[in-house]
Write a protein that binds this DNA or RNA. Structure first.
Lengths: 210, 210
DNA sequence: CCATATCGGTGGTCAGACCACTTTGCTATT
DNA sequence: AATAGCAAAGTGGTCTGACCACCGATATGG
């Protein structure tokens, strides 16, 4: 293989690097097609099996999506099937879970504060609908509520991070806030009491089913 | 391949499943050796390349460790390697500079608030030293200061995320706060005015060199 | 007894061969 | 001319076999 690499680095790791740069160079976005395995094999001067080792790893992470007979495409991080397998390995440590839950809560708090300035009365009503439609399913309610918030946050990076965290955490626990929290938050948003959002989040812990 | 699998599931995904069960059955712990690639290939009735696709994916995630000439071993798992891989793609692919900067600032604010409760007077003095030692180099000062804070935050996940963001953002610009900010923050920490940390961050923007 | 050469097992990589699937475009029939 | 049907090309999915480089244990020679 001719992929430039630090001493002892394995070929597939170099491939990974190379693919990242390729994505960057061509400014590829989710949904775009990346070169075929055989083409990459030729371009990067590496065996097809090495290419595949890199691609499979990326696929496991949900970074790409492969369609038999069509090609390989950049993914937009849908909940991927393998997340379960991953999580079963990853989230064994309690400290990891704790870190994740805390980080996720922080993100939720901050995106709420970011979205705050952009929410209109209409948005407010839609949020209320979301709460009512899902009142029977706390977990779904939680996801729907914050997904809506996220769409008004105007920060794609934070959105991606939150989706990922949500994906992982949802495979182990069902985390959500209790009814009171959402109503209190709605009230704060409605009544323009920005300063109290912080406090509300910090004084609330997740509930958990299962 | 004879690995039992749901319709259309790929072989390597079945292998993943199989390996996890194997680990479970034999109660393997970190450091233990797992069967060789050729042995797995025979036992699971799959080609060695498929076995490798599964193992490489696991390796990339940090689940296993491979020693050339010796074998493959369960890793003393560092779950956060996964975060790095994911983040390295997410950060690069589609985050505008603006998103990244904002997210980074949020993380810095929140880790400071987390660390707040753990900081002792000694820590406080050390932070002051850091500021003085780097007074000539704003960028280095920024990194050193928050690295220290991070070490007292007790949330490895947030730490990883911050390091990555710092890494990526530093390739684009040199961001730091102005002198006043750090002194003000020091004062707040010292005088136990937790509630004002939030405001200080939100009223301060990054400076930028280059 | 020790230093060393050898050998078997292991991961690392490649090349080539099929297969299954999708798309495309040509062909032959209507 | 329009269309139904099929063939070909391109792609991912998988397996096999072949080397290489590396490690550890064992046999060998001093």
């Amino acid at each position: 293989m001719a992929v430039s690499m630090s001493p002892k680095q394995k070929v597939y790791q170099g491939i990974l690097q190379e693919i990242r740069e390729l994505i960057d160079r061509h400014n590829l976005k989710p949904g775009d097609k990346i070169p075929s395995e055989r083409e990459l094999s030729g371009k990067l001067q590496a065996g097809r099996s090495s290419i595949r080792e890199a691609l499979r790893a990326m696929e496991l992470l949900g970074l790409i999506e492969t369609r038999h007979g069509e090609g390989t495409f950049l993914s937009n991080y849908q909940p991927y099937q393998t997340v379960e397998i991953l999580a079963s390995f990853i989230l064994q440590e309690n400290s990891t879970k704790r870190d994740l839950v805390l980080a996720k809560q922080i993100i939720e708090k901050e995106i709420t504060k970011l979205a705050y300035q952009q929410l209109t009365p209409t948005n407010f009503k839609e949020l209320q609908s979301i709460l009512e439609e899902n009142k029977h399913n706390p977990k779904e309610r939680h996801v729907a509520y914050f997904r809506y918030i996220l769409n008004h946050t105007d920060n794609l990076l934070l959105a991606k991070i939150w989706y990922l965290m949500e994906d992982f955490s949802s495979t182990v626990n069902n985390l959500y806030y209790d009814d009171y929290f959402y109503q209190a938050l709605q009230t704060l948003l409605y009544e323009n009491r920005y300063g109290q959002i912080e406090r509300l989040f910090m004084n609330t812990s997740y509930k958990e089913t299962e």
